[in-house]
Amino acid sequence: MHIPDGFIPISQCIVYYVIVIFVGYFAVNWAKNNLDEKQIPLLAVLGAGVFAIMAMNIPIPWGTSGHMIGSPIVSILLGSPFAGFLVMTVVLIIQALAFGDGGVTVLGANIFNMGIIASFLGFYIFKALKPLVHAVPSVFMGSFLAIFITSIACALELFIAGTFPLTAGLVFMGLYHLVIGIFGEGIISTIVYMAINNLRPDLINKKSLDLKREN
């Protein structure tokens, strides 16, 4: 869902940059008060893994492809949407500057979508579902709904930008990311959660997720 240059007028690009800087201020504060030294290896490894998996586009029907975002599972594992924001911001900056994946003028919009909207949705949907069902289906639903709703937000932004018509934009973006959300984001995030939960359950931030009683 990386928006290229030319899809959003510069005046609107600035708005997204301002929002990202504003959220970035709170993310830095979150890290300075909450980011434990022992979480850093996981943070860095997740960054590397997210970058790699974003290069692996999976085919979906209708001659289209897609890849996961990754910030929802990072937020869930590290216990804050600000963690997802920080990791995704690093990944998106490198993708835009070094690889031309996503434009530079629209970098703020891309961080707004994949770093902010996807992180917060993934984390809070997981947190809301967790008391009702087991953690694993909550990870799946949180990640899947996060990318799906982010694609809806992206379609709305491109409608405001005058680039996509409203209804058709929502239908195509929603339809493609519904499939990517289930077979990409949802399944892969669930596998990652189960793997970390087996390998290093001590690294999953239980305090902020109220998972204490389960283990």
Binding site: H2, G63, T64, T163, F172, M173, I180
Partner: peptide
């Protein structure tokens, strides 16, 4: 193949 956003465009 083009990704979801490119395909929509």
């Amino acid at each position: 193949n083009p990704d979801g956003l490119e395909s929509t465009a």
